[in-house]
Every structure is written in structure tokens, then in C-alpha cells.
Design a protein around this nucleic acid. Structure first.
Lengths: 232, 232
DNA sequence: GCAAAAGTGTTTGGATTACACCCATGC
DNA sequence: GCATGGGTGTAATCCAAACACTTTTGC
């Protein structure tokens, strides 16, 4: 990999950013991982990340990493936590700040960039040993994601533009590792501002479900008037 | 101030840690601020902070800053957010990680250290213009504190060892800027494991209130058995 | 007795839970 | 017609809000 400045200059202290990219499919939350093509931890699965340039804003570094890997733009990035144990990186003191992004999996076309020999979506419950302290980074980030899923309508960043109410339910069931009652779940979400489409699922061998979208516009309006606050 | 390594070595990139120290008194949450005795922003009020040594763990740097200023030890530190705009520090690229600590104000004897000409507790609603981007750091940290106050029994770190139920109520009223009904508040906290003392307030010119402590031991026990989860 | 705050009980309406049932589609 | 999931109604219960009331202290 080529940096615009000499690699050495990054070290003594160095500051990196790891970007956890989440997606949702088949009732499971997935994480986009790369197989490292360089030492340290060559050949191991890892969270995509990169060093932050001296004149680069953290948010911009996050967007750059996300874009390089997925070609996505305009995705909101959320800061997770910062990890800075002196020994966490074998080559020197690298403090890393974790960010996460929520993506619609069908819009992501991940390609192995200069960092990686392979890129893969892995369902969260199947993620095994990762490079560095990336398992720890994942678990604290997932805890923060769960808090945000409870208090902000971020679930819709993971779902396709048009989704069924059952997909929404499955997302929360997977995130919180719980079984929810269908009728009760629908009563609970009754106050969420949805756009109700006339379309239905196709190619299913049962009664097709109605499709909904989240009404961002109405949501912001309700928020501003303090007439609604998202809670799950 | 003397560093163990040359000051220059810190720069190009540099990594600092700011420590927001909260306390509670007279129904108000306070923040411990210092008046800077050095440029940049000399003479302005700021959140205490310091550079992190290359071989120092972030948590340890936080504890060091807290201890230097307040002489407190054994206080839990909570990570807040990391701030890294390229221009946030006029002398170079300083990325800072904010931590916060909750203290019992009567146990804190803050002394102006080498950093500061003055140290002062200021009620949150009276905090004015601070140095650097410290107002932004304070507001995001306070948002995170509120989330934690809602989901974990951290309020007891701010209250004296023995407190009245009304003090507990005032803490939440101040944090969430709301008026709560006394009878309803007491119903809500009925499940919190308290130690009920035989002592009462003294020197009050009204019926003295009973004193309570938080029963850490019983709390941990209930948590482990999954028989209770703190919610406010 | 009065002021001030401590401390408790009752009622009501809305949310949560458990559960039962009907509906639309593919094969 | 039957398997599969979509979609809805009801009753019991719990919880939160509003409000009223009694108690204990200092002066």
C-alpha cells in the first residue's frame, strides 16, 4: 500500500480508524470483514481500517474507508469507541477509533481493495477469531449499536427501502436475541411514521406481505414538534 | 510543565485525553473546570486534560489526570467520544479522547495543579464559553452520561454515600431537565436495592428525610441472577 | 399553629402480554 | 385442501400519571 507520506512518519504514535460495516439479510445482521493481505495478522479476518492522514478529519477518514471498500457514499457514520492499549498493535503505538455504518446489503458491492485478498459478509453470530483486538472492538460496538437501535430509527438504514413488517421484527429479534410476538410487535410500532405502499412481496409461497417504507420527512416533522420520540 | 520526553516528539500527531469530572450538590450537576495557565487559550476555562504518553494506556492517562487534579483514586472512568478535527488545536494535530468520571463532590479537594491557575466546580447550566472545542465535548459527553444514567445505577457515584430519596429525584430532574412527581418517582424506584438506614437528615427546618444507600452487593447479585435490570 | 418538606394511597387510562383466530397465496 | 406465513381482535394485567392526603420537624 502506498501512503502519501513516508510510512515511518505515522509511527511512534499512530492513529487509525476502523470501520464496522453492518448489513441485514435473511433475518441476520451481517458484518463486512476483510482478509488481510499484509503483516501483521496476514491472512486473518479483520475489520477494515486504515491510518488517518495528518490533515484528515476523522469522519472523512471513515467515509474514505467505507467508500474504498464498498463504493458507497452519503452513508451516515457513527462513532463507537476508541481503543488504545499500548500493546494492541505489534508494530508500535496505534490508537484506533472505531466507527460503524449501517448499510442496505443489496446496495453494497464490496470489492477487495489494496488491503485485502477477500471481502465477506459474515452473520454476527458466526464471527470467529479476528485480528488484533477486533473481537473486542466488535463487541463494544455492537452494544452501542443496540442502544442506538433502541432509541433512534436506525433500523431503516439496514433494511431495504421497502420492507415488510416481519423483516423489521426479525431485525430486532436478531439484535436483541429474543423472540417477539407478532401481534404485540405490530401494536408497538403503530406510532412509527410509515409510508404504506400498495405493493406486496412477490415470489413467496404464502400470502404476500405488504411493503412499507420509513417516512423520514414525517418523522423529522414529528420530532421537531416533540410529538413523537422513537423507542423500541 | 515537564514531559518525560521532548515536547516536540508528541507533535505532528499528538494524542490527548480530556477528563470531565462531574459532581452533584444542591440539586445541580457540576463540572470541574480549570483556568488555563498557558497558551493556547491562556486564561480561559477548560476541561482538564493532558497528553497521553506513548507507553501509557488510555484508562491510565485518565486516572492520572483525575488524580493529579482531585487526589481521587479508584474512581471508575467512562469513555465518552473522540474528537479529531484537524484544526481543533492551533498548535498541531491533536486528537483527543474524552473520558468522564462521576464523583462525590464532598470527597473532592481540587487543587490547581501545574496546568491551571484556578479550579472550580460550575453547575452545568452555568457553563459558558470554554477553550478549544470543549463546549462540544461537554455536550456530547453529557448526552452519553444521560444514556448511562438511564440504564445503569451510576447516579449513586454522584450522590453521597448516604442520601435522601429527594436528592436522588433532584439528580434526575436536573439531568433530564424535567419535573417529576414525588409519589410516582418513589413507586418507580421501589425495585432498586437500597440499604435503609435508621439515620435521618439533621439541621433541616422541616420533617427530616430518611437516609438510604445503594446496595451494591445485592444489586450485583440480582444482576447475576437476571432478576433485575436498572432502568430510569 | 404555621410553614415546609417527608411520605403514602387511590383512581384512571394507556401500554404490554398472552392467546386465539381468520386470511391469502403456491402447490 | 393444506402448508405457510400474513394480519387482527380480545381480555387480563401492569405501569405511569395525576392528585389528594397525612406526618413530622423547626420556629
Amino acid at each position: 500500500m502506498n501512503y502519501k507520506i513516508e510510512f515511518d512518519k505515522f509511527f511512534s504514535y499512530s492513529f487509525s480508524l476502523d470501520c464496522l460495516i453492518f448489513g441485514f439479510e435473511n433475518g441476520q445482521i451481517h458484518l463486512l470483514l476483510i482478509k488481510r493481505n499484509m503483516d501483521p495478522h496476514k491472512g486473518e479476518w479483520a475489520i477494515p481500517g486504515d491510518l488517518v492522514y495528518p490533515d484528515e478529519d476523522l469522519d472523512d477518514a471513515g467515509k474514505r474507508i467505507l467508500h474504498d471498500l464498498t463504493n458507497l457514499e452519503g452513508i451516515r457514520l457513527h462513532q463507537s469507541q476508541t481503543f488504545g492499549k499500548p500493546k494492541r498493535h505489534p508494530q508500535g503505538r496505534v490508537i484506533t477509533c472505531a466507527y460503524f455504518a449501517l448499510t442496505k446489503m443489496e446496495e453494497v458491492n464490496a470489492v477487495a481493495s489494496s488491503w485485502a485478498t477477500e471481502v465477506k459478509w459474515i452473520p454476527l453470530h458466526k464471527v470467529k477469531q479476528l485480528a488484533f483486538d477486533h473481537n473486542e472492538i466488535l463487541s463494544s460496538t455492537f452494544e452501542i449499536l443496540k442502544i442506538k437501535l433502541s432509541n433512534e430509527p436506525l433500523c431503516f438504514d439496514l433494511l431495504p427501502e421497502k420492507f415488510t413488517l416481519n423483516e423489521l421484527q426479525q431485525l430486532y429479534e436478531y439484535a436483541f436475541n429474543s423472540d417477539l410476538n407478532k401481534a404485540n410487535f405490530r401494536k408497538k410500532i403503530k406510532h412509527i411514521p410509515f409510508i404504506s405502499h400498495d405493493e406486496k412481496q412477490i415470489n413467496v409461497k404464502h400470502r404476500p406481505a405488504k411493503l412499507f417504507s420509513f417516512d423520514q420527512k414525517r418523522y423529522k416533522d414529528l420530532l421537531a414538534r416533540q410529538e413523537y420520540s422513537f423507542k423500541m
